[in-house]
Design a protein around this nucleic acid. Structure first.
Length: 546
RNA sequence: UGUCCCGUGGUGUAAUGGCAACACUGCAGAUUUUGAUUCUGCCUUUCUAGGUUCGAGUCCUAGCGGGACAACCA
């Protein structure tokens, strides 16, 4: 019980802060911008932020970083909330950066009064040009010398809608020659005559990220503001603003974002796949989005376990998709009921089984679950088996069906292949077999020992189902290394739809229900299902060893 | 030709100056009415060079390598 898991670097910081009495308790936040759907990378951030608060008895706010009305929508807000809850977390407060627009405006005025911000009439091109480069200093322009009074008046006019988009911006007055480019008089406010999803047309000036995020953290008294590595250079500005605004000193810490093999985490590129209909929406099971994962059948606890396993550090990483699949299988193995479904059917006639007779055989739903129970499967003279489970000329170590060979039909009988029926082209169309009556599953007195066990479905009772077989979205392992269009790397076989024959019990399944199709993988019933045709998504294949 | 961040098995993550470990992957074997699960074993690791120290993956310096930074995006 005393085995202690080592701490990640953020936990170390928090424990040190708590031990030093720097904070009575911690407060974190998860700050998505509602301009797209959440993906696996966000799951890492969510698990981190909410997990920390849970572990140390603090709280976590859900705060939408909605300072750019042009790209943000209510639809995204709703889906983000749903995804966070699905992952299993509950926020202390649902908040919006836009809730603070008035306070933020006052803070900007305060900065102007202190002579630390000015209104600039330059175009964005001019500002970019004056900014210099990482190796060359920027240079100030004349607007930098405007008086406090003039800046106050101009900023008020910006707010009042006196100017067109892009005509003016408010900038911090720091140092145009600073080594950190973000400190070269960063833009704080820009004019956008755009409708905001929450504040409507109340505002025509909107704060930039750097003048909204840290200030929101401060207003909410966030103790540990955790973000990804690309914000490291922003930390200096984050602290500068807090200090000069004289507000609650939240502190920013950065960790490495999640990268995974054969996929992308860029919201912009994912949006492109959706818009160009490369995939069927944000929740397409091939997407690395949380809604895609949910639809594909990934249990939320497996995602949490995954986030726990990958850890939190500061070095760039590329996590094997196989690790996520491992976590998914681990949970599904314990939860999912077993069913038999034949994907590529080959007819088998049991020649010594009476015509018209149906025998009901019990089969275990899940031996891994404590009370998995059993279901009844019809057995009859005509069966479907997997075409792949028969080989006319089998190699040495093959232990499925072959001419004259025996195999166990799972939960049923041992059968022997007596003859192979072919069509004119030589294709195997049917197998004739005999069954061993004494070999009935659970009551086997035959004394036979066969190595192979295969799944099967009774042909007359078989129900056709649509099965969607998903594979990796991209063919390239590390998508961060490509230099051409990412769409060139799409896997043309990422979706393969087949009609399969299922045992009748499967017809009772409901959307969202998860199964293991014996020897075929884990599957989840899709919402596209109809009474006529149930649809199943392949969540993940079974592990396969030779 | 800048500043900042980061270099530990194939991939991740630990080791907090004192025997380099855990997970995933891979390989081999055992069990198995799923070639699944389960179990056992094995392979493979501190970027380089100096320095400090009784002792360095850990501290210092330099080099090398990777990443970030020049949106009125977040």
């Amino acid at each position: 019980m005393t085995e202690e898991k080592s701490l990640n670097f953020i936990e170390e910081i928090i424990e040190a802060d708590l031990a030093a009495g720097n904070y009575p308790s911690i407060t974190t936040r998860f700050p998505p911008e509602p301009n797209g759907y959440l993906h696996l990378g966000h799951a890492k951030s969510i698990c981190l932020n909410f997990g920390l608060a849970l572990k140390y008895g603090g709280k976590t706010n859900l705060r939408f970083d909605d300072t750019n009305p042009v790209t943000e929508e209510v639809e995204f807000v709703e889906n983000i909330k749903q995804d966070v809850q699905w992952l299993g977390f509950q926020w202390a407060h649902e908040l919006y950066a836009s809730d603070y627009f008035s306070q933020l405006y006052e803070l900007a005025v305060k900065l102007i009064r202190k002579g630390l911000a000015y209104v600039d009439d330059s175009t964005s091109e001019e500002i970019a040009e004056q900014k210099g480069t990482p190796t060359a200093p920027g240079k100030p322009n004349p607007y930098r010398q405007r008086s406090v009074e003039e800046n106050l008046k101009l900023f008020a006019e910006m707010k009042a809608g006196r100017y067109l988009d892009g005509a003016k911006v408010l900038r911090a007055k720091i140092d145009m020659a600073h080594v950190n480019m973000l400190m070269r008089d960063p833009v704080l406010y820009r004019i956008k005559h755009a409708h905001h999803h929450r504040t409507g047309d109340a505002w025509c000036i909107y704060p930039m990220y750097d003048f909204a995020h840290g200030q929101s953290d401060s207003i909410e008294q966030i103790t540990h503001s955790i973000c990804t590595l690309e914000f490291v250079p922003h930390r200096e500005l984050y602290n500068w603003l807090i200090e000069n605004l004289e507000i609650y000193p939240s502190k920013q810490y950065e960790f490495a974002r999640l990268n995974m093999t054969y996929t992308l985490m860029s919201k912009r590129k994912l949006l492109q796949l959706v818009n160009e209909k490369v995939v069927n929406g944000w929740d397409d099971p091939r997407m690395p989005t949380l809604s895609g994962a949910r639809r594909r059948g990934y249990p939320p606890e497996s995602l949490r376990e995954f986030c726990d396993k990958i850890g939190v550090a500061k070095r760039d990483n590329l996590i094997d998709m196989g690790l996520l699949e491992f976590c998914v299988r681990e949970h599904l193995n314990k939860k999912a009921s077993r069913r038999m479904v034949v994907f590529d059917p080959l007819k088998v006639i049991i020649t010594n089984f009476p015509e018209g007779k149906t025998e009901m055989l019990p089969s275990e739903n899940n031996t891994e679950a404590e009370n998995g129970g059993t279901r009844q499967m019809p057995f009859s003279r005509e069966l479907w088996v997997e075409r792949e489970d028969f080989m006319e000329n089998p190699p040495k170590k093959y232990f499925r069906l072959s001419p004259g060979g025996m195999v166990r039909l799972k939960s049923a009988y041992i059968i022997r292949c007596e003859s192979v029926i072919k069509d004119a082209t030589g294709k195997v169309v049917e197998l004739h077999a005999t069954y061993v009556p004494e070999s009935k599953s659970g009551h086997d007195t035959s004394g036979l020992h066969v190595k192979g066990v295969i799944h099967w479905v009774s042909a007359p009772q078989a129900v056709p189902v649509e099965v969607r077989l998903y594979d990796r979205l991209f063919l390239t392992e590390d998508m961060s290394t490509i230099e051409d269009d990412f769409k060139n790397h799409l896997n043309p076989h990422s979706l393969n739809v087949v009609t399969a024959y299922a045992e009748p019990e499967l017809a009772k399944a409901k959307p969202g229900e998860q199964f293991q199709f014996l020897r075929m993988g884990y599957f989840c019933q899709d919402a596209d299902s109809t009474d006529r045709k149930p649809v199943f998504n392949r969540t993940v294949t079974l592990r396969e060893s030779k």
